[in-house]
Design a protein around this nucleic acid. Structure first.
Length: 420
RNA sequence: GUGGACGUAGCUCAACUGGAAGAGCACGGGACUGUGGCUCCCGGGGUUGCGGGUUCGAGCCCCGUCGUCCACCCCA
């Protein structure tokens, strides 16, 4: 029973990495003043058609769209920015023009799956609205870089400026003119007409592209000085980066600063973003500068190395037939007073330690008719730190045996000693 | 959407030119009669992705289909 092409069940170690990444991102971005927004996974299709560009690959071929029963066309969101902008205009803008938002969630694109690319994938994205300063560009690149540094992912950052509606067309036509005389691969022939900037990305025409005009030489005065200030501020933040004039974002809405984050391990960008000063207005809001980025969760998870030693946690109760009733009594007694246990401190070091672990994880064997051995083996395989053993001996002596599976020693304790 | 490689046990992979489907790991049990990890023994698990075809006989050959992976396209 396979899952839908390009989707997968996330479980075990990978699920732990997802959890770690999402938890870290929430804490990190909240601390930096970003607020989480959970926009719907389905949106009316105009949200993306309008913003990504009707001729973009995503809109043309990759969106999961369908007609709802009321005849409205609905899509599974292919990216997060457009939805965040829609939300900002609708619910935030009139109350406070400046806003810092972040989101975490699944996106959908019907592409052919391959390494680091899935049809359902997850992004962690940040968007800043109402900020036009070059400091804000540098800031958002800085926090992105720090994000990866904090989770121990080696990376490098490349930045560029794609200009604005006054300078980009000039560059476009210069490029077109330059390539006119050259022989290009089949794909690039089409790109020349549709979006000449894309030719810079081509893997076949590398030789031809090498001498192509540089976009940075074509920036208008405003874009040029902004970009220079961004670079200066990046230095102020101490961010290591490279300028790569060949970076072209696939989404039409970018203006000015754009950037991509590459892992040193594989060629895909693990995060990318940039400025999109015209998008809010374009979608019907008041003119508002904005910028943001999205982090590819699956791609990042691939690079995560969690501390390999998974800690043993918790207490697991094992018992024999003679101890069954007492084991169940102990279990229920602990479960009903779990909040007291977490509040309670003190006792011997053993008591404190056992209590600590009970709070984290606590369970009882429901296979008490099996041998004690197999119950202990189960506890071990489930990575419990302690087991409690309740059998004939314990009943007779009025105690419970505790065994530390990590350090291989055991001791006896009275139940009341632990719980009161 | 284009091109290529590959689908055998939960996982990683064997099976000579077509001739009775195997191993390691994992899982379960036992040796250790009340105690995990180490060792040894035993055990459960397969319509060889699916559907056709060729053949006395197909995991192997042919066709189709689905899926996975890789590259292109595109992109996080």
């Amino acid at each position: 029973m396979p899952t839908v092409t390009g989707t997968d069940d996330v479980f075990g170690e990978v699920a732990e990495k997802f959890e770690f990444l999402e938890n870290f991102a929430r804490g990190y971005f909240k601390r930096l003043g970003f607020e989480e927004v959970r926009t719907p996974i389905i949106e009316y299709s105009w949200v993306f058609r309008k913003t990504l560009g009707d001729s973009s690959e995503i809109v043309m071929h990759q969106m999961y769209s369908f007609e709802d029963k009321d005849g409205k066309e609905v899509v599974l969101r292919p990216e997060g920015t457009a939805a965040a902008v829609r939300f900002y205009i609708e619910k935030i803008q009139s109350a406070k023009p400046r806003a810092k938002l972040f989101y975490i969630g699944p996106m959908f694109r019907r592409e052919r799956p391959q390494k680091g690319r899935y049809r359902q994938f997850h992004q962690i994205g940040c968007e800043m609205f109402g900020f036009d300063s070059p400091e804000s560009d540098a800031y958002i690149i800085f926090i992105l870089s720090e994000f990866f540094r904090n989770i121990g992912v080696q990376h490098k950052i490349e930045v560029n400026s794609v200009g604005c509606p006054t300078c980009r067309p000039r560059y476009s036509s210069a490029l077109k003119e330059f390539f006119e005389a050259k022989t290009l691969c089949e794909d690039c022939q089409k790109r020349k007409e549709r979006n000449p900037l894309r030719i810079l990305d081509c893997k076949k025409d590398i030789e031809v592209v090498k001498d192509a005009p540089n976009i940075l030489d074509f920036l208008c005065q405003k874009c040029k000085s902004h970009f220079e200030l961004v670079l200066n501020n990046l230095k102020n933040f101490g961010v290591k980066f490279e300028i790569n004039p060949k970076i072209v974002r696939g989404l039409d809405y970018y203006t000015g600063t754009v950037f991509e984050v590459f892992s040193t391990k594989f060629s895909n960008a693990i995060a990318a973003g940039g400025r999109y000063d015209l998008l809010v207005e374009f979608m019907g809001g008041h003119p508002t500068p904005a910028l943001g980025f999205a982090i590819g969760v699956e791609r990042t998870v691939d690079l995560l190395e969690l501390s390999s030693e998974r800690n043993r946690l918790g207490l697991f109760i094992c018992y024999t037939s003679e101890g069954k009733q007492k084991a169940f009594d102990f279990f229920t007694r602990v479960v009903v007073s779990l909040n007291l246990i977490s509040a309670g401190k003190g006792g011997t070091s053993h008591v404190g330690e056992i209590r600590e672990h009970i709070v984290k994880r606590f369970d009882i064997s429901v296979e008490g008719t099996k041998s004690l051995k197999s119950q202990v083996r189960y506890a071990d395989s489930q990575n419990f730190r302690f087991i409690a053993i309740i059998g004939k001996n314990e009943i007779e002596k009025g105690v419970i045996t505790f065994r530390d599976l990590q350090n291989s020693y055991q001791f006896e304790m009275k139940e009341d000693e632990l719980l009161f």
